[in-house]
Amino acid sequence: MSATPAAGPRLRFHTDPREFLAAAADYLAADPVVSTVVTTVAHRLLSQQEEGIVAPDRNWWLVVRDDSGAVVGAAMRAAPFAPYPPFLLPMSDAAAVALARALHDRGEEVLAVNGALPAAQLCAAELTRLGGGRVQVSQHTRLHELGELARPKPVPGRLVAATEDDVALATRWFDAFMGDADEQAGRPRGASAHEVPDRADMLRRIRAGQLWFWVDEAGQRVHLTGANPPSFGVARVGPVYTPPAQRGRGWASNAVAEVSRRIQDEGARVCLFTDQANPTSNRIYAALGYRPVVDMANLVIVR
């Protein structure tokens, strides 16, 4: 691990998610919905570490402390897809700028920054000031939490858990998810970098009960909904994908509602992200009872 000088926000980088979680647990647990991406990724990689899977050397976890030593921010660089963007939770303006300077001093190439606003924007702006280029918005996202679930109009079919026989289909639909989302939001297909799990990772998700299909009356798989296991009492739904030929039939609303109900019945809170440029998905989730929590963004640095 390494730390910045004591003056101003104090940044400490960790290479081990276990150390990070131990250091930042109280902070992360205080607002587990906002922290969901960082906590779910940390717990997932910790679980893989215990299975003997070695994480890339580029991964790091960050704890930000104020002058009193209290944790006041966190971030990570653990994305499994290029250009491996850091993900920032809310932090002070000074901390966001200090992080950019620390990354520059560490010699890290950073071509994208994701996370909470304005921290992500300030960090990206300082990186361009130090290294050149300009900042562009790849995607504006919004994190929502489910309040009281409003069940949608029922449709034919039912929710079924994915099985190992579904690996190929689930992988194709994971891959199609972001490309279709780009097109629906008016972006070029492939504009948004994203993770496509390999076979081993997809099998882990399926065996952990994290993927479901909606099947129609004929037993055909017409929709996919995933969810991350709870971290600090919060589970995040996603991806949510319906192939183009099956859209507009209520599959997504019913699948997400049923997955959300099951999560709440198990005692966890439920959240999900939407693309602010996709009015259809935002409308669907609002109708189910999801309410906005915080705006975030995926930023790219063009050099």
Rank of each mutant, 00 (worst) to 15 (best):
S2D: 13
A3R: 13
A3M: 09
P5E: 08
A6I: 02
A6G: 04
A7I: 07
A7H: 00
A7M: 05
P9G: 07
R10I: 11
R10Q: 14
L11H: 05
R12F: 05
R12A: 07
R12T: 15
H14E: 14
T15I: 00
T15E: 09
T15H: 14
D16N: 11
D16P: 13
P17Y: 03
R18N: 07
R18T: 15
R18S: 13
R18G: 14
F20R: 01
F20Q: 02
L21W: 05
A22F: 05
A23V: 09
A23G: 08
A25R: 15
A25F: 05
D26M: 08
D26H: 05
D26E: 12
A30C: 07
A30L: 12
D31T: 04
D31I: 01
V33P: 05
S35Q: 12
T36A: 15
T36K: 01
V37F: 08
V38P: 01
V38F: 00
V38R: 00
V38S: 04
T39W: 02
T40V: 13
T40R: 05
V41Y: 04
V41P: 00
V41K: 04
A42H: 06
A42E: 05
H43S: 09
H43C: 11
L45W: 09
L46H: 06
L46A: 12
S47A: 14
S47M: 07
S47R: 15
S47G: 14
S47E: 15
Q48F: 11
Q48D: 10
Q48H: 11
Q48I: 01
E50Q: 12
E50D: 10
E51C: 06
E51Q: 15
G52S: 08
G52I: 08
G52M: 03
V54N: 12
A55C: 07
A55D: 06
P56F: 03
P56D: 00
D57G: 02
D57C: 01
R58C: 07
N59W: 07
N59V: 11
W61I: 03
W61L: 01
L62R: 02
L62C: 11
L62V: 13
L62M: 09
V64I: 08
V64G: 01
V64D: 01
V64S: 02
R65Y: 04
D66A: 11
D67W: 03
D67H: 11
D67V: 08
S68P: 02
S68G: 08
S68D: 13
G69V: 08
G69Y: 00
G69K: 09
V71E: 10
V71K: 03
V72P: 01
G73A: 03
G73M: 03
A74V: 06
A74Y: 02
A75C: 10
A75K: 03
A75N: 09
M76E: 13
M76Q: 15
A78N: 03
A78S: 12
P80R: 07
P80W: 05
